[in-house]
């Protein structure tokens, strides 16, 4: 008996493991450098840990207030609540709080450290632009983020970046005050202290840059995972693809004009030679390029088309 029609994506999982491994490795190396330079590690860890703790426990409130989202009751948004209700029953997860943000930008996000404290927020812009089934596809993508505990994973992953950034800043302050109050161990050898601080700043800056790239890479993998799980949940990958195309404002890619009417004009169009290759902006993006996401959804759709 077929349990599910969708094959597991081992490639995505292994790339994610590799990214996490590199991030962890970077972390170990960084701590080793700090230890070798005789920095009071406990202090650094405590302060950076405090940031992490704050971000982890208040992620839902931080994100909601920065987007100006307000929670809505089932009476205020009955349709939205019904959709979330049913998706939660389908996926067997506790229902998150539902919020709406007053913004014309079509967007949606999920946040909260675990399933019990999760919030799913949609903007009024997305409510207006998407049809009901498309909105449901977007909601199932966001619910997948909640199920995968992406806030927890990404907060922990970005810990290193926060740590390194903090070390850079405090080392510069320590340097500015002549190394006197700073790390306090090599007061008698000012020259040496200056060199150490420079080294710390350099090492931290490199660590920060690398961890930034790696967390962004991880974030893109998490997005692909959520796309996949969301599409499988509603059983119609193309719906999510359609919603993505609409949200990214690239609906113009699928023309509504009749081919015969447009053809005479084609001679005047300059088709921009967009090479689908490497670009720097793709390294920094939190989301994978639309093509990559659509390609994955198309593969899932193809798996649905196979006879049993």
């Amino acid at each position: 008996m077929a349990r599910t029609r969708f094959a597991a994506d081992a490639g995505l999982a292994s790339r994610m493991v590799l990214t996490m491994f590199l991030l962890g490795l970077l972390y170990v190396v960084f701590v080793a450098v700090l230890v070798a330079l005789k920095i009071p590690l406990i202090l650094v860890l405590l302060i950076a840990g405090g940031f992490l703790f704050f971000q982890y426990f208040f992620s839902d409130r931080i994100a909601l207030s920065s987007m100006r989202g307000r929670e809505v009751s089932p009476e205020q948004a009955p349709e939205l609540h019904q959709m979330v209700d049913r998706l939660c029953a389908l996926a067997d997860m506790p229902k998150p709080r539902v919020a709406v943000a007053d913004s014309d930008l079509p967007n949606a996000f999920a946040t909260g450290r675990n399933q019990k404290h999760a919030v799913v927020c949609v903007t009024t812009g997305i409510l207006r632009r998407l049809s009901t089934p498309e909105l449901e596809a977007v909601l199932s993508h966001e619910l997948s983020h909640v199920a995968h505990r992406d806030v927890a994973v990404m907060t922990i992953a970005s810990f290193l970046g926060i740590l390194a950034g903090f070390v850079v800043r405090s080392s510069i302050y320590a340097g500015a005050y002549g190394g006197g109050g700073g790390w306090g161990r090599s007061n008698d050898r000012d020259n040496n202290a200056g060199a150490v601080i420079l080294l710390v700043v350099l090492a931290s800056a490199v660590v920060y840059a690398l961890s930034f790239l790696l967390t962004r890479l991880l974030s893109r993998y998490r997005e692909l995972s959520a796309d996949r799980a969301g599409a499988i949940l509603i059983g119609r990958p193309s719906l999510l693809a359609a919603a993505l195309v609409k949200i990214t404002g690239e609906m113009g890619r699928i023309p509504t004009r009749d081919l015969r009417a447009a053809e005479p004009l084609n001679a005047f169009f300059l088709v921009p030679a967009l090479a689908p290759g490497f670009s720097f902006s793709s390294l920094f993006a939190t989301h994978p390029p639309l093509e990559r996401r659509l390609e994955q959804l198309a593969q899932l759709e193809a798996q649905l088309g196979r006879p049993a």
Binding site: F6, A13, M16, L90, A147, H148, A152, I232
Partner: peptide, 13 residues
């Protein structure tokens, strides 16, 4: 592990 890898299996009835 599933949470770490960002994969959720479809829940069977």
């Amino acid at each position: 592990l599933d949470a770490l890898l960002g994969r959720s299996k479809p829940k069977q009835p």
